[in-house]
Each structure stands twice: as structure tokens, then as C-alpha cells.
Design a protein around this nucleic acid. Structure first.
Lengths: 149, 149
DNA sequence: CAAGATTGATCTTTCAATCTTT
DNA sequence: AAAGATTGAAAGATCAATCTTG
């Protein structure tokens, strides 16, 4: 499945990179979340709206939406309820479209600024390759089984 | 600050890798969390205990601990309260040491299995380099300012 | 009945006060 | 008063039922 020795312990180096991966992505999520807050959306809101925008006819069945953003059904259900309370959107209405349109420009600029601008094309390739290897390994590995929740 | 052109839009490729980074790390966190649950610890518990284990005398002031794991003070305060309720540990007691000892073996093996085993040494290096670039860029960039919360 | 979807309970995180200590 | 720390309330996430529909 994997290319490196399976039998040895995790090295200091590997552990350090692992922690750095967790810390860095946490920080990125935090900053992007703050960015989105300026247009009154949570990261969850954004994920939901984005998935709907990208779907055919701007609509998805609940379970399809859950799959698209890889959420548990119950989490989605609660979240949609909250969005409704806030006068937000379940299936993309004019308001919903408006919200995501207002958000996506700043959001994408933030992703570029915080992430893409930091990396050379080759680094992007390397990162993509590393993530693909991890993914591939998750598929064949995974004691908890199943893939996701 | 950065090496690539600042003025163009985020490319499809960059966006795809960005999403893949978010998805992959989410999945890793989920699996590691499930792993920890088998020894009755949450990822938060583990972070707290680990920081204390690595500290001088297995103790830290509250604000130092918060800094070490990069949490807001209030979050740490609530979490420590919950750990106390559960009969867990604030400053590392015998029970706390015991808990982290029981957890760390399985946890580190899981990190190796899910993360390190998937990557060639060169991929680890590449990943570390990409993360370092992102970090460096976060330092000089960051509109929300400050660094963390 | 089984998959799709919602609900309630509980736990976690965040935000805005508030209390404490120097 | 300013930094350190705690608290309460509200939002978000998770788990185990439960309800709904095909």
C-alpha cells in the first residue's frame, strides 16, 4: 500500500511535519473564517451555499448536499434549520445567490492571498501529490473503516 | 513576500488543491479523533495533556498552556472545567500521566499509519517546505492581523 | 423494512461580559 | 487600569433515537 517501511516508529521529523500540518491548516481555517464573517457567513454557510451554487439548477436533495460537503445528515439538518431561523436559505433563493456572490469574491481572494500566493507552482504540485498519497493510503488503510462518518 | 504573481486570480488548479487540503486534513482529524476515543480522550484532552507532558515539571500556567496549544483563554478554561468534572486532570497528576501514556502509543501509531506511511521521505520534505512557505506568508500577510485569536 | 431526514440531548467552541490580581 | 482568568449565553457539532417514505 505504502512505499516506506511499515515497521518502524514515527520519526521526530514526521511528527514535527504532522503537527505543522495540523497547526497551519487550523490557522488557515481561522483566518478564512474571520474573512467570511465580514460578509455575515459562517464557514458552514459558505460550504452549503457553494455546493448549491455548483449543483444543477442550484438545488440538491438533502442527502446529496450532505455527501457533497461530506457532512453527517444530522449536522446538515441542524445547520439548515439555523440558516432558516436567520432568514437565510435552504434551497438557493435570490437571497442565497446574493449571499454567496457577495462572499465568493473576497473569499477567493483570501484563499489566494493566504494560500496560493505563498506557493510556487512546483510547491502546489508537490502538495497535491502528497495529499493524493495520503488519500490513497486512507482508502486502503483506515481501521475505523468506512471512509467517512 | 511571495514568489508568484500577486495580481492574477486564483486558478482552478490552486483552488482544487486548496479544497483537497481542507478535505484531507478534515478526514485525518476525524480518523485520529476516533482513534483517541478508544482510550476515552478527545482531541482537546490529548492536546492539553501532551502540552503538560512536554512542559517543565509537567505544569504550565493557564496562559502558557493556552499559548502552547494555541487556544483562546476562554476555550481552555471551559475545557479544563469539563476535564475536572470528568474526574480528569488540570495539572498533570498521576491519573493524567497515565491517561496520556495509554493514549500516546496508539495515537502515534495511528499518525504513522494514516499519515507518515503514506509519504516518501521526499514527500515529507516537500510538504514541510510548502507549509513553511505558507507560514512565512501568513506572518507578513494577514489582514485580520495579530497572528492568532 | 430500509434509506432518507429530523429531533433532542450533550458536548464543544466562540463571543462578550465579568471577576481577579498585580 | 491592564493583563490573567473565569463565566454565561448562543452557535455549532456529534451521537443516539425517532419519524417519514419509498
Amino acid at each position: 500500500m505504502s512505499q516506506t517501511a511499515q515497521d518502524e516508529r514515527l520519526t521526530e521529523r514526521e511528527l514535527a511535519v504532522w503537527r505543522e500540518l495540523l497547526d497551519t491548516t487550523s490557522e488557515l481555517r481561522r483566518l478564512l473564517s474571520a474573512e467570511l464573517q465580514q460578509v455575515e457567513l459562517s464557514p458552514g454557510d459558505y460550504a452549503v451555499l457553494l455546493a448549491l451554487t455548483e449543483a444543477d439548477g442550484n438545488a440538491l436533495r438533502s442527502s446529496e448536499l450532505a455527501d457533497a460537503i461530506d457532512w453527517e445528515r444530522s449536522r446538515l439538518s441542524h445547520h439548515l434549520g439555523r440558516m432558516e431561523n436567520r432568514g437565510a436559505i435552504v434551497v438557493l433563493t435570490a437571497d442565497g445567490l446574493d449571499a454567496i456572490r457577495r462572499a465568493s469574491g473576497p473569499h477567493l481572494r483570501a484563499v489566494k492571498r493566504l494560500f496560493a500566493d505563498a506557493l510556487e507552482p512546483e510547491q502546489i504540485d508537490n502538495l497535491a501529490e502528497a495529499l493524493a498519497s495520503i488519500r490513497k493510503n486512507l482508502g486502503s488503510n483506515n481501521s475505523t473503516e468506512g471512509g467517512h462518518a
